[in-house]
Design a protein around this nucleic acid. Structure first.
Lengths: 235, 235
DNA sequence: TCTCAAATGCTAAGAGGTTTACAATTGGTT
DNA sequence: AACCAATTGTAAACCTCTTAGCATTTGAGA
């Protein structure tokens, strides 16, 4: 029975996928400050492209203020948003650390202030304090862990549950009612089901009062309503 | 049309899941040697338990000789094997680096010689050479990458393809015909499908001459036959 | 050799997702 | 205001997997 958007959430769908909320956050206060002080501060205007799919990841970014949309421009120039990240979060570590090309585009959602951490800054932080490397490795290990949790989640959850999770992920910690600008087709691709199935799932979530369906947007009514960690779904 | 076990294999199913083939291998020759010299060498007799699910991961292991079975003991004392690792490979990094309990059991498949790398050895290696931390971070980033590749693979591949991949993963680089001791129920759980569906998939793979089904074992006939990287499945 | 539990093979019913197709709605544009 | 392309709602046929049940085969131990 549907009883609400009360989900597992040991990891947000989007956070764990394309960004590491804890990558900078997990560092001890003093080390974090030192690292962020090393980085170059850059501003981006709303809509400006921060990173592009395919180009080499020579840095990662820490968000000081504003928010960043993570997504993919399709061939026809449309953007499919996977996540919206806010202050304190960081993104781009994966390509940077792994030394492979960026897999997603990042666009400034509004006026945004970022700190750029490149190879030099990373090395400097690592050599300045022996704890740093260890903590970063720990954070990465957790990301691997979460990634595999995702694999299993995908296997064991119903479509409705997966859709609900994806929506929660797109809310990104917002407290109250949130309007997500996304088409059903895009959301279907994100979750990995057909548009028809997604429609049915959304229908159920709407009936149980969790969301509202509008043209080109989905309104999540009470996203924070009991978002817990390490519990099984009540859905 | 089924044309053979010619698969993607940017990542082995099992390797990327429970072990990191490249975790030690990726290090530069000199650093690797130094790290492995630091570690305590231990022998395990065939069948001996190396690590147990649930206990704290205070180290990881590098296999010098012999092979190690990674799996899970079910409540009734039976072992479900997920992977068999050989010389040069390592395992247990994830729990060790992430500082959470072990998720799998590891048993010596035969007389095996391991090198134990603990906190002290890791720290020592990291501080001895600035490259080490960077390389380890890179390896971890790749594991995250592979994990997400798995997510997408699970979404886009047919059951037959997923089964074929799982089998290839269990072969672990063996060149010729390999006999894998595993029941259909266990393999079904591993792949995430029902035994009935697995049976059908195995039937197709057998018909196309890739495997043989026996009682409690599956024989993979030509596992190495064109195992490539970063290509799409021909299956 | 006989016995029996485990493992496999097989079938049928049912649930749920996909594809395809078309109608209805929406929001921007002329 | 009228139009049009994008989006959404809906239906039907089809396909695959699951569950459940039972028959058959296998291999190990008495």
């Amino acid at each position: 029975m549907l009883r609400g958007l009360q989900l597992v959430e040991s990891s947000h769908f989007s956070r764990s996928t394309f960004a590491a909320a804890g990558f900078v956050t997990a560092l001890p206060e003093d080390v974090r400050r030192r690292l962020l002080n090393l980085g170059l501060v850059r501003q981006f205007a709303k809509g400006e492209l921060i990173q592009q799919r395919g180009d080499p990841g020579k840095e990662f970014w820490h968000i000081r203020s504003g928010n960043v949309q993570i997504g993919r421009y399709s061939f026809d120039g449309k953007l499919s948003i996977f996540a919206v990240l806010g202050p304190g979060e960081s993104f781009g570590e994966q390509a940077f650390l792994g030394e492979f090309p960026r897999m997603v585009d990042a666009i400034a959602g509004n006026e945004v202030t970022l700190v750029r951490i490149g190879e030099k800054e990373l090395q400097s932080a690592i050599s300045s304090d022996p704890r740093v490397a260890r903590i970063l490795l720990k954070t990465m290990a957790h990301m691997v862990q979460q990634a595999f949790a995702l694999v299993n989640a995908g296997r064991n959850l119903s479509t409705v549950e997966r859709v609900a999770r994806a929506l929660l992920g797109l809310c990104e910690g917002e407290g109250h009612t949130v309007s997500i600008p996304i088409t059903q087709q895009e959301l279907a691709d994100l979750v990995g089901v057909s548009r028809v199935s997604l429609g049915k799932a959304l229908g159920k979530l709407e009936q149980s009062g969790n969301i509202e369906r509008n043209y080109g947007e989905i309104v999540v009514l009470n996203p924070l309503l009991s978002r817990r960690r390490h519990h099984s779904a009540t859905l």
